Amino acid sequence: MVKAVIVDDEIHARESLTRMLNVYYPSITVIGKAESIKSAYDLIKNQCPDIVFLDMQLADGHGFDLLKMFDNIPFKVIIISAYQEYAVKAFKFSAVDYLLKPVDPDDLVKALDVALAQALNDKQQERLNALIENTRNIGKKDKLLALRNSDGTYVVNTSEIVRCQSDGNATIFYLVDGNQVRVNRTLKEFDEMLNECGFLRCHQSHLVNQRYIEKISRFPSSLITMNNGDVIPVSFRKRKSI
């Protein structure tokens, strides 16, 4: 049995999520509900749940205030938010499991499948810390990006990424320290996330960080040379804009 706690200051939201879990994920048992940071902290300390559904906006503070009360977080966290625009990007950058209100049953099942498949030692603490930092830095160019793969989670600053390269349905990240990280998400997803951070899609298979471009060649073919020596092709339709 997987034990869950729901933290939300709206009674109808707590009851709705409980009903959905009973129908769509019966292996999860809701062992308690809380509407405030204090009551949630006491409940979690006493009941030791496996997973906590945490609304970001509570009557007595922010969901982050609750998380900061734990030196180590010994439970899975799924964030719930009613704020779609700025929040979604922060969640995606931080690779945090989240649900948007009103909660859709399909999204609930997907989030739980991902959350429960990951071990507790997959650097959830670092991902949540990255989320807190990214939420503080809305609108700033550099952000923390959590790269999740089968080996675990790597949290890097976007300023540490030289370039990204498509590898089928995966993406390889080339970092300034020479390391590479392969993530099972498409380059298109990261292009949408990183374009506001100074990244340039120069080719169907390549995304480059403009701060590390050393040279752009036009003839005999269009190429971008990065300051680490990597040479990246520029597609025909991207030549003019670049």
Rank of each mutant, 00 (worst) to 15 (best):
K143L: 07
C48E: 06
K89S: 00
K123D: 09
S241D: 05
A4R: 05
S166C: 04
S235H: 09
S94Q: 09
S81L: 06
L223E: 09
V77M: 11
E10I: 02
T135Y: 11
F70Q: 01
T186R: 11
M56T: 00
T158Q: 13
D106Y: 03
D167K: 02
E126Q: 13
I73M: 08
V181M: 09
M193G: 07
Y24N: 12
T158K: 14
C197T: 11
N121Y: 06
L175H: 04
R185N: 13
E10C: 04
K140S: 06
F70N: 09
R211N: 00
L66G: 00
A119P: 04
S241C: 11
M20T: 01
L147H: 12
V23R: 13
V208Q: 04
K76C: 00
K188W: 03
Y86D: 13
S222M: 12
K215H: 13
I132E: 07
N209P: 07
L207R: 01
E192W: 00
E214A: 10
N72P: 02
A87I: 00
K110C: 05
V96T: 03
D151Y: 14
F91Y: 14
E196W: 06
G178T: 04
G32Q: 11
E15W: 04
K45M: 14
M20I: 01
C48Q: 07
V114E: 05
I73Y: 09
N72I: 02
G229W: 02
N129Q: 15
